[in-house]
Design a protein around this nucleic acid. Sequence first.
DNA 1: AATGATTTCAACCGCGTGTCT
DNA 2: AAGACACGCGGTTGAAATCAT
Length: 248
Amino acid sequence: MEGSSGVRKGAWSKSEDDLLRACVQLYGQGKWHLVPQRAGLNRCRKSCRLRWLNYLRPDINRGEFAHDEVDLMIRLHKLLGNRWSLIAGRLPGRTPNDVKNYWNTNMRRKVNYHEKGKSIKQDAEIARPHEVIKPLPLTFSKTSPWLQGKFITLDHSSTKVGITQSVCAVSSGTTNWWETLLDEMSDNEDNNTCPMAMEDGRFMTNLRDEEFTSTTTKACDLFTQGQTRSDFFLDVSLWDMEILNVGE
DNA sequence: AATGATTTCAACCGCGTGTCT
DNA sequence: AAGACACGCGGTTGAAATCAT
C-alpha cells in the first residue's frame, strides 16, 4: 500500500518496527524528517513519529486502565477538555492516542448516559467546544514572542529564575490570559477567594488569597524545573474539583 | 456456521504554531 | 516581514476483532 507520493501507508510490519526502533535507539527521538532516511523506511516522517510515540516507545503501558487512572482522566478532562496530550502527560505510560481512544469508546458513552434526560438545549451546551487555554511553549528561544520586552532575572537569594512583569506574564496577544485571571480575581473579591483554573471560559476552584499567593509564588519555580504553566495549574487545582459522576 | 452490526484502536489527515532564513 | 519548513495536536477514518442473531 503506497500513497501518491510513493511512501508506504497502513499497518506497520514487524520489520518496519524493528528498523524504526533501532533508528531511534541509535539517534534518539526528534529530527523526524531524517528518520525515514536513517532507518531505511519508506514512510513519511509523521508516520514514523506516530508509530514511535503511540506504539514502540518502551515506556508505554498497554494494559487496562486502572480505576485511579480513569478517575484522574475524568478530572483532567473536566479541567482541560479534549487536550489529550496534556491529559496523557499526567498518566504515566499512556499516550494521547490511548487516552483519546479510551475516552471516545468508554467515557463518552458513560457521560452521554449520565446526561440522558437533560434537554436538547442542555446537550448542545455540553457539546459546546471548550474555550481554549493556549499552552505556553515548553522552551523559549531568544526571539520567542513570549519574551518580547521581558527580562529574565535571577533571584540570587533563592537561586530561582523568574520572568519579570508579574508572574511569567508573557503573552503579547490582545488579551493576556493572566490579565484575565486578575480580572476574575477582582470579581471574586467579595468572597475573598481566587480562581485557579478555567473550564468553559470560567475559572474553577476557590483558593483563598493566601493560598493563591503561595501557589503563584511557586509557579516560576516549576518553570525552572521544566514544567509548563499547565502542569502548575493542574497540580494546584486538580483535586479540588468536583468529580463528575459518570454513571457508576 | 454464517452473516450483519457494533466496537476497538492504529493510523491518517489537516491545521496551528514555532523556528529559521 | 514573509515564506518555508518541521513538529505536535486533535479529529476522523477504516480495518480487524468481537458480539449478536
